[in-house]
Design a binder for these strands. Sequence first.
DNA 1: ATGAAAGCGCTAACAC
DNA 2: GTGTTAGCGCTTTCAT
Lengths: 337, 337
Amino acid sequence: MITIKDIAARLQVSPSTVGRALADDPRISAAMKQKVQEVAGEMGYVANRAARMMRGVSSNLVGLVVPDIRNSFYSTIAHALSKCLEQEGYQLTLSETDDDRMTELRQIRELSSANVAGIIIVPSAKPHAETIRLLGMTPHIQLLRKHAALSDQWFGIDDAQAIYLPTRHLIELGHRRIAYIGSLAELPTGAARLKGFRDALASAGGACAGIEELGAPGSREFAQDALRRVLTLPEPPTAVVTGSVLHTFGVLEELLDSGVSVPKQLSVAGFSDEPAFRWWGPGLTTVALPVSELATACGLWFVHRMKQKVAGNAPYSAISPPTLVVRGSTQPPGASA
Amino acid sequence: MITIKDIAARLQVSPSTVGRALADDPRISAAMKQKVQEVAGEMGYVANRAARMMRGVSSNLVGLVVPDIRNSFYSTIAHALSKCLEQEGYQLTLSETDDDRMTELRQIRELSSANVAGIIIVPSAKPHAETIRLLGMTPHIQLLRKHAALSDQWFGIDDAQAIYLPTRHLIELGHRRIAYIGSLAELPTGAARLKGFRDALASAGGACAGIEELGAPGSREFAQDALRRVLTLPEPPTAVVTGSVLHTFGVLEELLDSGVSVPKQLSVAGFSDEPAFRWWGPGLTTVALPVSELATACGLWFVHRMKQKVAGNAPYSAISPPTLVVRGSTQPPGASA
DNA sequence: ATGAAAGCGCTAACAC
DNA sequence: GTGTTAGCGCTTTCAT
C-alpha cells in the first residue's frame, strides 16, 4: 500500500508537505502541489481512511436506516440517495429496523461506532432514549416520519393530504360509508394520515360515516383481516381507503380472494403508486407520492449541509405534495360501471 | 469517547490487559475478563473501528454491489444479506452499478479503499480489468451472475432451467411459435436463459419455431418495443416467454396498452414471482426463483468463510432450482378460455 | 514555504 | 498473567 511517506521519499520532501499538498493547504506552493498530485496519481496513492478517521475526521459513510428495504418505498429512497451521495464520494450503508426500537438502537449504535458522517433515518414509532442520545451526537436527517425528539431537519410527504385526497374523491363520488385501513396513529405518519381521513369526512359535514381499522404499517395480514372484518359489518362500507403500501397490497389480495366486485360492490383507493397498481382489476385509484424526488432533495440537502464547515443544524422541513391518480377502482356507489 | 485507556485507568491495570480481556485472550484470567467486561459496559465503551483498522484488521463492512436496488430481485437480496450479516456484526454497504462497467469500477475502488471485509457482487457483463484485479485482492462472492475471471465462489439460480420450464410448458400446451424476450447473451445469466429457451425448443424436435429478442435486462422499454415488433410479424407467435423481471413488466404493460387478449390471442409466461403477478389479467404463469433463500445461503457462507482464519478460497457453487407457477395466462393456442 | 515530532486508539511483539 | 513499548498512516501544532 502506497502511503504519504512513499510519496515524500520519492520527492525528497517531508511527509507533512505531501499531506498538506494533498489537503490543498494554502501554505504549499502551487508547483509543489502539482508535483505531489502527479506522483500520487502515478504511484496509485489511495488515502488510508482508517488513519484519517483516527485523526477525528468522520468517515465517508452515510447510514440509511429504514424499516425494510424490500418495501419499494424504501428501495426507491435507497436508490435516489445512493446516486446523490455517490457523486460526492459518500458511501451508503444500509440498516433495517423492522420498525423495532431495539433493532433500531442496535443499528444506531453500530453506525455511531463506525463514525459515520451522517445518518438518514426513517425513525420507528418510539425510538429508545439511547437512540435519541446517539443520534443527537451525529448529523442526521429524518425521512418521511418525523419524531419530535430528533433532528429538526426532515423531508417528508404531506401525509394528511395523501389520505385526504382519495377520501375526498370518494365523498365527491357520493360515498357515505367509507372505511380507512391504515397505519397506527402512534407513528407520526399514521397520525397525519388518520387526520387526513377524518378531515375529509368532516368536510362532508357529518353526512359521511367513517370506519377505522389501524394496524402496523408493515403488515399485509392485518389489512387482509381488517378488510374481511369491515365487509362483514351489518352495514358495510361502499368504499375503502388504504393508508400504507403493504395495507394496499393486503386489501388487493383479499379482494381478489373474496371475489368482491370492484368498483361495483366496493370502491377502492390505494396508497403510493406501484407500477402494478395499473393492472389491478379495473386499475387502482391511488395517491402518487414523489418518493424519489423527496429522497433526492434529502440527499442534496445532506451534501450541502456536510459541505459547510459550521454545524448546519438550522431546522429545515420539506413537505412534498401527493397527487391523486384516478383509475377504474373508484366509482359512484352502486354504479353499474 | 471512552477508550481502552479509560477502562485501564479505572481498573488500575495496563491498557493492554484491557485490550486482551476484551479480545478474550486466553492469557487473561477469567476474573479480570469479568471485571473488564463489567466496567466496559458500565462506561459505555465502544471500540474505535478506525484504530482497529489501522492495525490491519479489516473493517466490518461488507460491500453489496448490485445493478439497481429498486429491482425487487436485488432488494430481496439486500434484505436477506443484511439480516444474515448483521447478526455477526457486519454492516452492509450498498453500491449500485447500473450495469455499467465504469460505475462498477468506481464502486469497487471505493470499497477497496474502505478496506471492506468482503464484497458480494452481481457483476456486470464485462468487468473492467482493474475491477477484476481489485476484487482479486478482496474476499468476494458472486451472486446470480458468474464471471469467469472472478471468484470461484458463486451462488446462483439455474437460469437455463428458469426459461426451459415455462418454454417447455408452452410447448406441451401445444404452442408452435414462441417468442422469447430476454437478456442479452453477453451476460452469463442471459446466455444460460437463452440456452434454456433453445433447449426447450430443441426438445420439441424442430416442430416449434422460436423468435428471439434480446436486450438489456434492466430495460422495460426494450421489452415493450420487442413485444410490439413480435406481434406485428407476418406470422406472430402464439406465446411469449420473458427473461428478466423488468422485461416481464414491460411486456405486461404493453399487453394492457395494446389490448391483446391473454391467453386467448397470446399466452404469456413471466420471470420471477412478484406478488402483483397474481393480479395481472387472468394471473401470470411465471417461474418462481428462490432469491431470498439464495441470498441467505450466500450470507451464511460468507460469514463461515470469514470465520476461518485461513484464506477460504475453495471454489464453491450453489445452484438453486426455479419452479414453475402456472396461472391463467398460459393456455393451449386458440383456446376459448 | 517546509520540516520535525507528537499523538489519535488500538494491537502485538517482547519483557518480566 | 500482566506490563512496556513500538508503531499502523495521517493530521497538526510548533519550529525553522
